[in-house]
């Protein structure tokens, strides 16, 4: 159905292939090479935006697995990212462990915390679960703010990421680190959706009772979804910590959690492309809005009220989320699929 005209699948391998035709391969490699060379033609500022997008992407992929595939609504994602960030920060700063150890344990700790707060999901769903994860967000942030080892309100410094002798100091070196990990995550997430586990997730999302009757172990798979989602959040948090170099609990506010939900909805829930579209859309919009547009508008129209600069961003994001839910609930990924179909069939759209 989504194959180019005249292409047929004759073997099982062809049917399962992610990249199907030679043109796809060429396009993929062209894109990867373009991405690889990005530091050549982007300055540090836009590379920084790219890094933020990459980190956000990893977390959003995790959230998409949890919400989009498994249907377990989590509105505390920023809290789990915070767990990962602080785990990495504490391990590398206070205990001076290597970066990779910090990265992996950040994922594991966040995953375990995710399982703990995901436990109620076995009995409840929908709104109840949403509230539980909101509670998780506030409890996590409170603990971070008051526990001595995290540096509390003062924050904590994080050294640069390093693997062996390589230190990821500049934006461009971190760009490679972040995007290699992001690419691995995208690949794994894409494949996860097609395995037994992914199918079980989708069954649970569509009707968890029916899934249980079919022999899917709800406890195991729901907690697994929480673990995977929060593991990726933890990895993203660790990368964020090393990228910023300084952690403070204010970076993981409740509004950030809402933004994450907004991203995967704008992108398209339960699709592999969705998080990419959503994250790029929101983060680029955020940058353009706060760095370019607002100062420009403030300079041109001097009569703007004082709250314009801080107020316009949440207003616009709230509006975008609401409008997407009403007008295009399947997100940008669906639009992209429509565009591809139209492009393939053009000019004979029937």
């Amino acid at each position: 159905m989504s194959l180019p005209c005249g292409t047929r699948n004759y073997t099982y391998g062809e049917d399962m292939a992610i990249v199907r035709t030679r043109t796809h391969w060429v396009l993929l490699f062209a894109f990867l090479i373009a991405l690889f060379l990005a530091p050549l033609y982007f300055n540090d500022y836009w590379l920084g935006v790219g890094n933020l997008i990459g980190i956000t992407l990893i977390a959003a992929i995790g959230l998409n697995i949890l919400v989009g595939y498994c249907g377990q609504l989590s509105i505390g994602h920023a809290g789990f990212i915070a767990v990962g960030a602080y785990t990495a920060a504490i391990l590398t700063n206070r205990f001076e462990l290597p970066f990779l150890v910090g990265l992996i344990s950040a994922g594991l700790v966040a995953g375990v915390i995710g399982i703990i707060f995901g436990l109620p999901s076995v009995r409840v769903k929908g709104f109840y679960l949403a509230i539980t994860t909101i509670a998780a967000q506030f409890i996590i942030i409170w603990v971070i703010n008051h526990w001595g080892i995290t540096g509390g309100f003062l924050g904590i410094k994080v050294p640069y990421a390093s693997i062996g002798p390589i230190v990821f100091r500049s934006e461009s070196s971190q760009f490679y680190l972040i995007f290699v990990i992001a690419a691995i995550c995208i690949f794994l997430a894409k494949n996860l959706a097609r395995t037994k586990v992914g199918r079980a997730f989708i069954a649970i999302r569509d009707n968890d009772l029916a899934a249980e009757v079919m022999g899917i172990n709800l406890l195991y798979y729901k907690l697994l979804a929480f673990f995977i989602g929060c593991f990726l959040a933890g990895i993203a948090g660790a990368l964020l910590a090393h990228w910023i170099g300084f952690m403070n609990a204010e970076q993981f506010s409740f509004t950030e959690s809402i933004l994450y939900i907004g991203m995967i909805i704008i992108g398209g829930l339960g699709t592999s492309l969705g998080p990419i579209f959503g994250v790029v859309f929101i983060r680029v919009l955020q940058q353009v809005l706060t760095i370019e547009l607002v100062p420009f508008l403030e300079k041109t129209f001097t009569a703007l009220p004082a709250g314009f600069a801080t107020g316009v961003t949440p207003m616009l994001f709230g509006l975008v989320i609401v409008l997407f839910l009403i007008l295009e609930p399947r997100g940008l990924a669906h639009r992209w699929a429509l565009f591809k179909a139209a492009y393939r069939l053009w000019p004979f759209s029937y």
Binding site: L73, G307, G311, V312, P314, F317, G318, I321
Partner: peptide, 30 residues
């Protein structure tokens, strides 16, 4: 417009509304 949509959309739309109102508040009462 969202009547009979899944609970996820219904919850998220209120989150979006909340976000919007928050923006309005900082706009008017900074």
């Amino acid at each position: 417009p969202l009547i009979a949509q899944p609970i996820l959309s219904l919850i998220t739309v209120t989150l979006g509304i909340g976000y919007f109102i928050e923006g309005v508040i900082t706009f008017i009462w900074p």
